[in-house]
């Protein structure tokens, strides 16, 4: 098991595997998302409370979920890189950040657009989820800014891993503190936790899986870029690029 893991974590091996894996993930993700979108937009009956506006959740929930997942991937792989000094995991962390920031932004926008007809406002300061997402976006910005302002890659890897770990504790605390705060100012929860019917839930699951697969394929491509850049002096990169087929 350990040996297998080490083999996978070796850059050339990973590069080859991800070359095969990424397109499959991308294609299957696209198919699932297309099917889920069609279901979500046209097939699923509308919600009796929210009307057709509830269809937004089919893109909002997956992007919110991916924004958190990308951060988890970023922080855990950063920690693995710090503790076991596996170089590949730092490349994973570096690759996950921009995608995570993109999905966080998307989750904020779709949440805000959903809030307009539902709450009558584009932005609800008292909602813990929106606030946590916003802070998460700031954390992503801070992470990427720290990374880009350190020239030495090894140093940037380690410093940003520390930041990501500190930030992960913070996201939890922000959520609870905003929850306390909004309970003072609102008196009631704005989000009603409705139970979803099965025929509404299944497309959501399909969307979640589809988005995750798309995310996976994008992540693999970016990791590959990172690996290529970090290993640019090594023999295997040289052999691969100068070979007739190339490796793109």
């Amino acid at each position: 098991m350990w040996k297998w893991f080490h083999q996978l974590a070796s850059p050339p091996h990973f590069y080859r595997i991800s070359l095969i894996l990424a397109p499959w993930l991308g294609i299957s993700g696209l198919i699932l998302v297309a099917y889920g979108t069609w279901q979500g937009l046209f097939v699923v009956p509308m919600d009796y409370q929210q009307g057709d506006a509830f269809r937004i959740i089919y893109v909002h929930v997956p992007s919110a979920y991916l924004s958190m997942m990308a951060y988890m991937i970023m922080a855990t792989s950063g920690a693995i890189g710090l503790i076991w000094r596996i170089k590949l995991s730092h490349a994973v962390a570096a690759a996950a950040a921009p995608i995570g920031a993109g999905f966080t932004f998307l989750a904020l926008c779709t949440g805000s657009i959903w809030g307009r007809p539902m709450w009558g406002t584009w932005w609800e300061w008292g909602d813990p989820r929106m606030m946590s997402e916003l802070i998460l976006l700031f954390l992503y910005f801070g992470y990427m800014a720290l990374r880009s302002s350190i020239d030495d890659t090894t140093k940037a890897d380690k410093a940003s891993a520390v930041l990501a770990l500190v930030g992960i504790v913070n996201v939890v605390i922000v959520h609870f503190s905003v929850e306390w705060w909004s309970s003072l100012h609102q008196g009631q929860t704005v989000f009603k936790k409705g139970t979803m019917d099965a025929d509404m839930r299944i497309p959501l699951f399909i969307m979640l899986i589809g988005f995750t697969l798309l995310f996976g394929s994008m992540l693999l491509r970016r990791i590959r870029t990172e690996v290529l850049y970090r290993e640019r002096r090594t023999r295997w990169v040289r052999e691969m690029i100068l070979s007739p087929g190339g490796g793109a």
Binding site: A53, R55, F103
Partner: peptide, 19 residues
């Protein structure tokens, strides 16, 4: 979309653009 068209379609459009 029962009057919510602008919201729903802009969300899906934005998702498409960002992905």
């Amino acid at each position: 979309m029962g009057g919510y068209g602008a919201y729903v379609w802009s969300c899906y459009g934005l998702t498409f653009v960002i992905v």
